[in-house]
Design a protein around this nucleic acid. Sequence first.
DNA 1: TAACAAAAAGAGACCGGTCTCACGACATAT
DNA 2: ATATGTCGTGAGACCGGTCTCTTTTTGTTA
Lengths: 364, 364
Amino acid sequence: MEDSAAPKRSVTVADVAKAARVSKATAARVLGGYGVVSAKIKDQVMAAAAALEYRPNELARSMSTGRSGIIGIVVGDIENAFFSLAVRGISDAARLAGFNVIISNSGEKLDAEKSAVDLLIGKRVDGLIVTPARCDSIDHLRHVGRAGMPLVLFDRSIPELDVDAVTGDDREAAIAAARFMVEAGHRHLAYVSAMDAEDGGFTDVARISNSAVRERVEGFVSVLTEAGLPNPLHYVRLGATDQPQTDDVIKRLLSDSSPPTAILASDSLVGLRVFKSLQSLGLSIPDDISMISFLDADWTSVTVPPITVVDQRVYEMGKLAGERLVARIEQIPLAVERLRVSTSLVIRSSVARIGGLGPKRDVN
Amino acid sequence: MEDSAAPKRSVTVADVAKAARVSKATAARVLGGYGVVSAKIKDQVMAAAAALEYRPNELARSMSTGRSGIIGIVVGDIENAFFSLAVRGISDAARLAGFNVIISNSGEKLDAEKSAVDLLIGKRVDGLIVTPARCDSIDHLRHVGRAGMPLVLFDRSIPELDVDAVTGDDREAAIAAARFMVEAGHRHLAYVSAMDAEDGGFTDVARISNSAVRERVEGFVSVLTEAGLPNPLHYVRLGATDQPQTDDVIKRLLSDSSPPTAILASDSLVGLRVFKSLQSLGLSIPDDISMISFLDADWTSVTVPPITVVDQRVYEMGKLAGERLVARIEQIPLAVERLRVSTSLVIRSSVARIGGLGPKRDVN
DNA sequence: TAACAAAAAGAGACCGGTCTCACGACATAT
DNA sequence: ATATGTCGTGAGACCGGTCTCTTTTTGTTA
């Protein structure tokens, strides 16, 4: 019963110093690993520290040094494979440089994002990586720089903000995916995203507040336009935030007078929901309808048919963001830039060639 | 250019006090929201704080109060859906109680776990939730209590440690799954886990250092024994830590003189690897071989056939662990206990009835 | 052995909050 | 008019480290 929940005051350098019969300053030097001390005294202090089970109070330490050794991450949703992979990339880069990581979830809600950023600033992290939910509300992000800590944007960029960003090449990725479908003979393509729609309906591309989504839509639209397909925005749908919503989106899409024959899903969660929707409707992929999903999630390779995906190299994105932030923290002089990680199309079997010619499988 | 990367000293209560022409103590009272101040002075201070863009230094705050308002989590692998779901459960419970969360990854490595725990103790978190990689090395966990902070074990329990634990009912779950297979006529059942094997081979159930895995194996074995099946440990295999390893495990399993006809996978990652292995071997599920996986992961419902799984209610587990820790932090008097969250079998179509009778589908 | 430099140890300010205690002003009781 | 109490404010210690500056010890050289 000797080590119960007693809120005993913890052992400090002063305690160790007293036990080792040296001054606080000297004990602090050996415990903190700075300055010079003779080997004899050092052993003496170490022994005392071990006997007392001293463990440093990192709080106090970072208060006087001004460095906490931790970097803060604010992600949209850790449960999303995209973010958990990214977090691992960031963590790996951070750990390599001797930093630890504290993660906060915004749930893609602006309010939660704001308070997470504030909290992290308050905790005096050494730097911040944020996936901004919207690019039109950036005051809280300005605070970061004003508090003197570096910020790296992840997955989405905000030109108005003079900070580094790591993103995928979303426009090119969407172009590659859309073009692949068009070349397979598709004439009616839909784009489905989970982003909250402002008011249910979809209005203006330029006003999409998430840069990744906007660029993808722009790329998507540009392909349709260039292919001379009419009304390229007609099948762009937002709001597939959960299964019922997605079912609804898909149903409305398919009840169109000339329904789409191919769907591009903007992330693996949306992709999975679309797949389930289609499946529950008794539709067969790719015979009845084709699809491509962003992100090479684990489920995409074990379905029948396996899904053609845009491989985003998320781990690399995370690693890059982590490295960039570390470089900023260490004051390495670097121009502010937007780093893009290239994507590639992983062709599997979820896109049919239509128009009567060729096999009903992915073209390559 | 006025708010560049200048490492400007941040605004403190003293600064605000000076600007508001009051004492530091008074400014601190309104900024910290404690004590009593007249409405007039309060407004005055608030205005000054706003003008100066004051934001509290949480580090300093927690140093004097002794509370950080954050709880630490050490998980095995955030990328594993099991843990990311659990983390969400914990976070939700924590946020509700006004706590924030800091997550560390151990990668199921004891060393990483130790240093993560040490780091978190150093950061003076208010409490800790840990998924211990092994139950036979617990010194670092003892430190937690000794440092005066509550600890809750997650997913795995350690009887030697007098602390709360939240786990699934692993033994019962394994029994239900194994019994389901036995009742479907299977006589040769395999159990495959990702846990690192001590030396490649498998020796003694009682010596499995992970309580969740051990209980599952025990449950599994008890069913085979009770059914009068010989050599129940024969097909228990550890070490399916990645795809090549799993391929190897499966190959060795199937080249046995009387190969298993059904496999129980101990988590969704192993399950997916097993599925892929089987698929790459050209084996059809459930006609050639049956399988059940732990955890109702998203991929399990979209494969052909959909996989019968043990639904672990991980979110609830996380929530419970979070709530328990919060209660401990708030010193609510509670007996130390092991909370078990019940599981259920979700029957889909990956287990065939064998022995010639009935359809080759899951029995229910 | 005295003189001096260099190394080792000590004293104490500091980081930015919280919080106890002391003090003055004013209201109420006697 | 004096004693008692309450309220609002100020002064300053404190949390547990780091780090600068000063003092003491040690070692080298003349």
